[in-house]
């Protein structure tokens, strides 16, 4: 079985075994008799093999890949962000609860200066999905204005220069996009994709985990705890079932 099929079959199990969740009951008396996995608590693997759902425009994908592959380039330590699936990872994340900001408090009044001063960094009432939609367009507009070419056509050195300028707060982007904080969002998500379980579409072949020596979704280190300070040479495992 190929990995993508496995991902899909895991997802299919969600629909075929969907029983009424005990959590739906308003009143519980006695111990719930349903002890199989709650359908709403099974992991939701990234959609694989289909079209992008959030990054539907090719130029946005190219811009994002250009940024991600300078944040995590291909080198002797491992593949690049895009080779490791970080674009697919982020597309999937943005298509779901994270992207829609389901957990966030988005009510007003919105007082950006006050909130930034009090919290030490800005807070946003746009969702992550909205921030990417605006941010990628702003990066493209910036490249067109300063260099006269598409962002993805810039040289690696020039992209590095722009990213460093964003990181240090020296470059601001058009249309009110705060460059420093869009940089931080992309850096966070690129590295999440590189280091999260491969079930979410990134960290392909567990490349991020192999890079640092993290054994992954293991659940028992009792045989190893007393091998103090030693290289354990553990092969990483993920939440995706082995063949």
């Amino acid at each position: 079985m190929k990995r993508r099929d496995l991902l899909r079959s895991f997802g299919a199990a969600v629909t075929t075994t969907a029983l009424a969740s005990p959590s739906a009951a308003a009143e519980l008396k006695g111990f719930p008799t349903q002890t199989a996995m709650s359908p709403d608590h099974l992991p939701k693997p990234a959609m694989k093999g289909g079209a992008f759902r959030v990054f539907t425009q090719e130029n946005d994908r190219k811009t994002l890949a250009a940024v991600f592959d300078r944040m995590i380039p291909s080198d002797k330590f491992g593949p690049s962000a895009s080779e490791a699936g970080c674009l697919e990872f982020l597309d999937d994340q943005l298509a779901g609860h994270y992207g829609e900001g389901r957990a966030l408090y988005l009510e007003g009044p919105v007082r950006p200066e006050t909130e930034e001063a009090i919290m030490g960094s800005p807070q946003f009432t746009q969702t992550p999905r909205q921030r990417y939609e605006a941010g990628l367009k702003a990066l493209e507009a910036y490249a067109q204005a300063t260099d006269g070419v598409a962002f993805h056509a810039l040289s690696p050195d020039r992209i590095d220069e722009i990213l460093a300028g964003l990181e240090e707060g020296k470059i601001d982007l058009p249309n009110g996009v705060q460059g420093k904080w869009f940089f931080e969002l992309m850096l966070q998500n690129a590295r999440e994709g590189y280091l999260a379980d491969p079930i979410y579409g990134g960290n392909r072949d567990m490349a991020g985990w192999k890079m640092i020596g993290f054994p992954g979704a293991r659940y028992d280190y009792r045989p190893y705890i007393e091998k103090r300070g030693e290289n354990l040479n553990l092969v990483p495992v993920s939440l995706i079932p082995n063949d």
Binding site: P22, P43, L239
Partner: peptide, 22 residues
Amino acid sequence: WRDTSTDFPPAVDPDELRWHTR
């Protein structure tokens, strides 16, 4: 309602993105 076997058995618990990051 949340319980061990239904919501966080060993097959879903070791997942940093879901439980720690998100």
